[in-house]
Design a protein around this nucleic acid. Structure first.
Lengths: 132, 132
DNA sequence: ATATTTGCAAATAATTTGCAGTCGA
DNA sequence: TCGACTGCAAATTATTTGCAAATAT
């Protein structure tokens, strides 16, 4: 359950936090802060954008969500913290997840480095838009 | 020569543009807009930050430089447009380049996709900071 | 002279911060 | 009650834009 996830991360499962976590986990589309806020405020009118920011920061520090920046200046969030890449279609703007073979990326250049986070962002055109 | 590079990209080699390109090519440290401006303004007092923005945008569109966003909200620029990854040390903040075997990353998940840009960002601790 | 480049200052956008009010154990 | 959670509004930061002045060919 969502509240257990928060408990286990040492985060008090308040109503707003549960809503935000729930939203992130149910949506696959890597929403922006604005999208999260705009959608949830319909259901939870007392929600403020500050709380969305606060909460996402909290989640992020706890490792519950990851920030995605396929394109600069546009920050999105992903509740799937397993390692995977993100592809953004330049036409339809949709973001696709794809599996990345982590091990294959590592090169001898980074011998002796302690790698904690790996981000793989691709951009291009998706099959749907290529057909046009 | 720098001015030829610009000519070949269809960009008029103005004084400021040459200075900015030169700066990017000589520095290996992937400067931010602010760093570029602050450094160059010492040498070229008439330079404005708007011009740095304009010029970088121009260069970027011409494919002369690439934007780097290892960490969200911090945009840096790289005059090396060959495919490579960027590692940012969370301790000393330094950015290291490393070779990436592009081919190894592609997965079956992206069959039918036209991949135009590949970005690989790692974060962690560099050997120097690990020793402390 | 004519088009391009440049620079200021204002506008915009995303995010952070300070602080006061509110809520729950 | 007390401390954590929330929300408003103001502050901050990065970037873009409009337009006029400077510059180059």
């Amino acid at each position: 359950m969502e509240s257990d996830i928060l408990q286990n991360s040492g985060i008090k499962p308040s109503f707003h936090r549960l809503k935000i976590l729930d939203f992130l986990r149910s949506r696959k589309n890597h929403p922006t802060v604005d999208e999260i806020y705009s959608e949830l405020v319909k259901e939870v009118p007392t929600l403020s954008k500050t709380t969305v920011y606060n909460t996402l920061k909290l989640f992020q520090e706890a490792g519950l969500v990851r920030r995605i920046n396929v394109e600069e200046q546009e920050t999105r969030f992903d509740a799937d913290t397993a390692s995977h890449g993100h592809f953004k279609c330049v036409q339809c703007k949709k973001i696709y997840d794809f599996i990345v073979d982590d091990a294959a990326i590592v090169t001898s250049d980074l011998k002796g480095f302690n790698i904690e986070v790996k981000k793989v962002y691709f951009q291009g055109t998706c099959p749907g838009c290529l057909g046009k």
